[in-house]
């Protein structure tokens, strides 16, 4: 019995740890990119494009939604596009777009951004604002799906754990049927009899829960170290905070509560069949 609980708890800790890491990852990715956008002006005529960019920048500087603004120098734009266009004489002939990086006030949402886009369109019909968050949307979507799967997994594990305890309690009940009946006939109340079973399951569940926590947390640490070794900025955003570890430490607590409650209900249900 403690082993079953230990395995359930270890798997739950892993799933919960994964879910928390994913949510941290999503939050940090969103945090880095949120609040920034890029204005793109496509215009073949170099002078006209520069003029449009200047006027748009002037307008945006006045706008309260924009807290920071940087004209991206042409050389930087060229460097950005180099992987696609290559470098050299011929490239100089290709008109590059003008880019303006914006930092947006925190309360700016997609609708406000669309309105901003409408206003600058008056200066340059080709101007577009890309919120960088929208590029990230598919990634965030994928992360969210993974999170939902992890949470469902936790739900399934809790259910399977309760089922395992139910079977174990019924088994113990069958093996002690005579004792239960005797104590019942001597005037033992249902609650008294159930508490005896609860106590023995409680100790099992505590032992299994702690063991499972150690196993699960060990596996989490191992995984975290492996990912840290990848040295990727994205993955680093997924590391667990102290609060996350506290949350993981409550997993065995839930396991104990589920186990004791299930055992109690099982015993009470079978006692109710006696007069």
């Amino acid at each position: 019995m403690p082993w079953v609980i230990a395995i359930m708890v270890a798997l739950c800790v892993l799933a919960a740890g994964g879910a928390l890491a994913l949510s941290n990852l999503a939050a940090s990715a969103r945090g880095e990119l949120a609040g920034s956008a890029t204005v793109q002006i496509i215009e073949a005529d170099n002078d006209l494009r520069a003029e449009q960019a200047r006027r748009i920048a002037g307008l945006l500087r006045e706008d309260p939604a924009v807290t920071g603004l940087r004209m991206v120098p042409g050389s930087e734009v060229a460097a950005l596009l180099e992987p696609w266009l290559g470098s050299g004489e011929a490239v100089d002939a290709v008109p590059l777009p003008a880019l303006i990086d914006l930092e947006l006030a925190a309360e700016v949402d997609d609708a406000a951004l669309a309105e901003l886009e409408n206003r600058i369109a008056a200066y340059a019909p080709s101007a577009r604002i890309d919120s960088q968050e929208t590029w990230l949307a598919p990634v965030l979507d994928a992360l969210r799906t993974l999170q939902i799967m992890a949470l469902s997994l936790i739900g399934l594990l809790a259910f399977a754990g309760a089922a395992a305890v139910w079977l174990a309690a019924r088994n113990a009940l069958g093996g002690n049927r005579d004792t239960i009946e005797i104590v019942h006939l001597l005037g033992g109340s249902d609650a008294q009899i159930a508490s005896v079973f609860q106590r023995s399951i409680l100790f099992d569940a505590i032992a299994g829960g702690l063991l499972g926590l150690v196993l699960g947390a060990g596996a989490m640490t191992l995984l975290a170290n492996r990912f840290a070794a990848l040295d990727s900025g994205m993955v680093a955003g997924g590391s667990l905070s102290a609060i996350d570890w506290v949350i993981l430490a409550t997993v065995p607590l839930f396991a104990v509560v589920i186990a004791v409650y299930t055992a109690r209900m099982t015993v009470l249900a079978s006692l109710r069949k006696l007069l």
Partner: peptide, 23 residues
């Protein structure tokens, strides 16, 4: 049903098959 245990405690019973708890 939950008042029956109190009544059983006011009785002493010697069962024909003893019904001692084995362990």
């Amino acid at each position: 049903r939950d008042e029956l245990p109190g009544f059983r405690r006011r009785m002493g019973v010697v069962f024909q098959d003893f019904r001692l708890v084995d362990h």
